[in-house]
Design a protein around this nucleic acid. Sequence first.
DNA 1: TGTAAAATTGCTGTTTTTTGCAATATATTT
DNA 2: AAATATATTGCAAAAAACAGCAATTTTACA
Lengths: 249, 249
Amino acid sequence: MLKEERQHSILNEVELHNRVLLTDLAEKLEVSIDTVRRDVKELDAENLLVKVHGGAVSLGFANHSPQQSNVYAQDKKIAIAKKAVGLLKNNSVVLIDGGTTCLELARLLPVNLKLTCFTLSLPVAMELLRKPNVETIFIGGTLSKGSQIAMGSSTINALSQIKVDYSFIGTGYVDTEFGLTEFDWDVVQTKKAVINASKKAVLLCISEKLNSQHRFKTCDLNIINTMITELEPWDSKLDAFKNLNIQIL
Amino acid sequence: MLKEERQHSILNEVELHNRVLLTDLAEKLEVSIDTVRRDVKELDAENLLVKVHGGAVSLGFANHSPQQSNVYAQDKKIAIAKKAVGLLKNNSVVLIDGGTTCLELARLLPVNLKLTCFTLSLPVAMELLRKPNVETIFIGGTLSKGSQIAMGSSTINALSQIKVDYSFIGTGYVDTEFGLTEFDWDVVQTKKAVINASKKAVLLCISEKLNSQHRFKTCDLNIINTMITELEPWDSKLDAFKNLNIQIL
DNA sequence: TGTAAAATTGCTGTTTTTTGCAATATATTT
DNA sequence: AAATATATTGCAAAAAACAGCAATTTTACA
């Protein structure tokens, strides 16, 4: 059997089943495991598959390059996410909400940080799966088309059964007087359940949203333990939030 | 024998079998291996075949064009998905499994089809959210990094509480004798739960996977109600599956 | 047709590639 | 931390490629 032929076979097997073990390949192709290892190494160098410990996986399986679409005020959200990462310790159990700011947090989690991470958001879950040391648990339920998060009674019920160290949540609107408010009633119900499911709630919120409000109320501001904006904590725009028993980062 | 004639013969052999050994060619053409080597070298220089160590391979065989598409055998999977769509009626309640074939099904759902659709797969869920008339419910649980599907006890428990009209499932391996088998133990547990959660189970499977097997068994073939491959139902490759009380599409 | 130049072919010895094995190191699991 | 599985490295045997050369055949042209 020619080397090319064999490598073709390997590629085919990988594409077909998404993953293969070197030992299985060696047995199937009737060559030594060293040979298979070398073949896989070459195919990996040619970017035709991805070599992993003990085997190989297909490109589609491994490469989940996120198409970084246009996020509004992404730089500010990244600044917020970086501050939020500072709160995390190894073996923390956290919940990450949906929204672009929370998505940045998921994206910026250090690869060596060991976390157990719940989420309701499809995009956040996608990002979390790329972190080798994060165990991701998706809270299921009816998915909302626009926000791509799980909602509804079964989601709320599932949330009622967990208690995480930190939850990182976004909000549509914040105001010192009216607290956290939203456009959607469903979203409010879900966020309430999220806050209930956490020992400490951390609000991630760009400063543009400060001092705005809407129809439905999630909670008062004093329910929140920590608020993170892209501003320096001593910025005067945050003055009104300083005597509310909230940690501001 | 003329040189040209000989080279033509070599080309023919390569096209027919995709690969040839120099030694075989030398023997068949009754010339020395050096001559064959030189011929192949020339044909390679003319881009009529690809010379490799010990032999030659055809152009189509060698040019496994990288990044042509992320999905292996996508055309076949699309053919399968189209057949599967035919089973669906308005207001059906279905469950769509993970894997690239099931993903194609999600992708090809008609925009006007009204469905309630459960899934455990993140990519499938993403696709379903783009269908205006599909209500998507994600079955939560611990997410598997590689396959991007929810697994584990909470997933299996959630599945135990639903019963859909159809479930569309993929499999790693199928065999008339060994039934549906998988590479992973966890995957098997989940697939079992999926099958239990459905009145009828529909297997989506490209013909390449027929007559292959692996470690862990999901179920026997007769548990499946319908099997869909990209082949015509009367294709002889499907003969062995015809007396198993399965509908073949 | 005859003859020399060019091309083709097979042979020789040498170099390179491929492969499997064993010893050691690294990673993963228990 | 121990046990197991996988990787890496160096090495040697076998197979294949290569380069040079001589014998043979084909071609070119007077």
